[in-house]
Design a protein around this nucleic acid. Structure first.
Length: 208
DNA sequence: GCATTAATTGGTC
DNA sequence: GACCAATTAATGC
């Protein structure tokens, strides 16, 4: 494994930088050392859909190697990040040489596919308010909360892209949630006050 | 400090 | 619930 680890290419990215572009030729697989990244799919009208978010230790671009020769998704940093890149050749060597790694990879794929299916279901079945709440809960689960504030700063637009709606809707839902004292917002910092209530609101409507 | 961008709010379809 | 417009707040230079 040491041999393979030597063949990586580490680089850093400033906030908002797109390092993986839709339609660009494959450059292997990325590993996120530090920072946060959003995975994007751009629609025909220039609308972005955030497919998933990645934090430290996540693998990015795993859908894009081996099969097709171009990426089907894009990725951009949402804060200053450090990434490293493994080329296709290196990846294939690793997969063919280390069965344990390949097995872990397979479990990882299965897991991600499951998450993806759940997300599709959510977008299709939940209303906007529920999707925004779900996004907040996801952020809470993924990045955690310190001093009662989420450890991630996303613009309204980015939250909208993730929830599959528009930034105006996100703003409106934020204000009503704030009025209901379910969340609190100070600048870009978001605080989930009544996590239990937020969760129950989603579950009630999901299990109908 | 000024200019650009993001957030908020109201309105229309 | 999306799109547009106007105002205000925040941010970059």
């Amino acid at each position: 494994m040491q041999d393979f680890a030597a063949q990586k290419n580490t680089f850093s990215c400033k906030k908002g930088q797109q390092f993986m572009i839709e339609g660009a030729p494959l450059q292997g697989l990325y590993f996120l050392y530090e920072g946060k990244v959003k995975i994007i799919k751009t629609g025909i009208y220039g609308k972005e859909q955030i497919v998933r978010l990645s934090s430290e230790g996540d693998t990015i671009g795993f859908r894009g190697f081996g099969t097709r020769n171009r990426y089907l998704i894009g990725a951009a940093t949402i804060e200053d990040s450090i990434l490293c890149n493994f080329s296709n050749d290196v990846m294939q060597d690793i997969l063919k040489t280390i069965p344990e790694f390949t097995y872990d990879m397979m479990l990882f794929y299965a897991e991600e596919l499951n998450k993806s299916e759940n997300k599709v279901k959510k977008i299709a079945q939940m209303n906007v308010r529920e999707r925004v709440i779900d996004t907040l809960l996801h952020l809470h689960k993924k990045f955690g909360q310190t001093n009662h504030y989420l450890n991630v700063y996303l613009s309204r637009k980015e939250i909208a892209d993730f929830a599959g709606t528009t930034d105006e809707q996100v703003t409106r839902i934020f204000s009503s949630l704030k009025k209901e004292s379910l969340i609190n917002i100070v600048g870009k910092k978001i605080s989930l006050i009544e996590i239990g209530k937020l969760q129950s609101e989603i579950i009630e409507h999901t299990q109908l």
